[in-house]
Structures are given as C-alpha cells and as structure tokens.
Amino acid sequence: MSSPDRGTPLVELRDISLAFGGIQAVDRVTVDLYPGEVVGLLGHNGAGKSTLIKCLSGAYRMDSGEIRINGEKVEINNPRDARRHNIETIYQTLALADNLDASANLFLGRELTNAIGMIDEAQMEAETRRIMGRLNPNFRKFSAPVSALSGGQRQSVAIARAVYFNAKILIMDEPTAALGPQETRMVAELIDELKRQGLGIFLIDHDIHQVKQLCDRAAVMKNGALVGIVEVADVTEDDLLGMIIAGKRPEHLAA
C-alpha cells in the first residue's frame, strides 16, 4: 500500500483501537501519512473517522495500539502532548471560545507574554493581523468576540490557529462544512500551499468530489474498521462510494 521509496512516514497509526462502553468505535486501524501528503479519511457518520483522529490530537486516549512520529513511538495523552509534537487540529466544531476575540483564540493556550509574564495583547493582535492578512485579507473584526463573526470568518480563525504555530501534521475535520463556495476554494488553495511546504494533512470529509481533488490517498472506514487505503488517482468516485457503502475494496485493486 504505502510506497517504500518515500522513507519514514511522518505519522504512523498502528492497530489503534478504542471502545466506548460496548461499542468498538475504532477497531485495529492502521494508517500512515507522509510529509507533503494529504490523506483523506472517508466513511459514514459513526464510521470512526473523527474518533480515530482524536486519538492523534489527544482529545481521546486509545485503548491499544501505538502512534509513531518520524518513526519514533510517542505517547499522546492530551491535547498538550499533541501540540508538543507539532500536531494541530481544526475541529469540526472549530473549538473557539466565543466570548474572546480572534487573537485571544488564535493564541489560546500559547499566549505571547512580555518580560514580566503579562499577556502582550498588542503584540498578539499585530501577529493576528499579519497572518489573517495572508489567509483572509477581508478579515476586519479583530476586537469583536468571535461569536460576532460569520462561519467563514470563524473558520479562518481556526485555520490561522493551526497554521501559525508551524504545524508539521495538520488534522482537518470537515473544514469546509460550514463554508460557501468562495471560502471553500480558499481552504483548497491553502491545503495545496501547506502541502508544498511539506506538511502532512489528514482530511476528514464527506464530499467525495472534494476528496478526489484535494487528497493523494484515501482511507475508508466502516463500522470502526479500515476498509482499505487507495491512491486517489487509481479509483473513481464510484469506487470510493462502493468502499464507503459496501465496505469492499474495488475489484481492479484487489490483490
């Protein structure tokens, strides 16, 4: 499946399992991700995509399995551990504190401080203006709480937060779900740009068409288990749909 000539994967998720009560949400799933690659995670609601990825982002603790980053086994017990390994996540719910402004959200948990340990509001806002100028030049509401922002603006705050801190591994959980066509295009361009910079990206998405466009490989899950991982170029959208619905690998790829 994975090409041997690409060296060490950026991330290896090996035999990850996680059960909630009696339900096996993730069942011995193995996926890897190389630098400069976008791997799409596909599946129905409840297939276990988000749960799998939350084990990597530190929101959940897996029951068994191991995570390797650049070939080394790592422990990720909470979101802080994940951030230490340069893993950034854009959650479907965006995970923004609605009562705080854009810069407070961007730097949440990693505030810039001055010599005596006080938060340097002005510096943070200046940095926010700079990165937003790059990501979403129309963004103006720097001092309003993010509850006053539109879906697209909130999305760009969430993306800015993930990008600003030099992420090496980016997890995007339905990043375009709440966006209009123009903003969706903006996200697509951003993903291409980040790919070129050598980031590895896990993209969870329902939109098969978009997965075909943005991803290099697609991993399909059903009922918590991995159906298969395919090179997106080798399959049609119908093949992917078949994997999602029937849980079968396409015939021409079946070894």
Binding site: A59, A95, D98, N99
Partner: peptide, 16 residues
C-alpha cells in the same frame, strides 16, 4: 474566561 466561554475549546487548546 476561555473556559467559561467554551470549556471544550479550552480543553482542546491544551488548557488544564
């Protein structure tokens, strides 16, 4: 204030 605004977001941002 972040925790009050959105406890989940605070937790996911690495706040204990």
């Amino acid at each position: 204030f972040a925790t009050g605004g959105n406890p989940d977001a605070a937790e996911l941002s690495g706040i204990n």
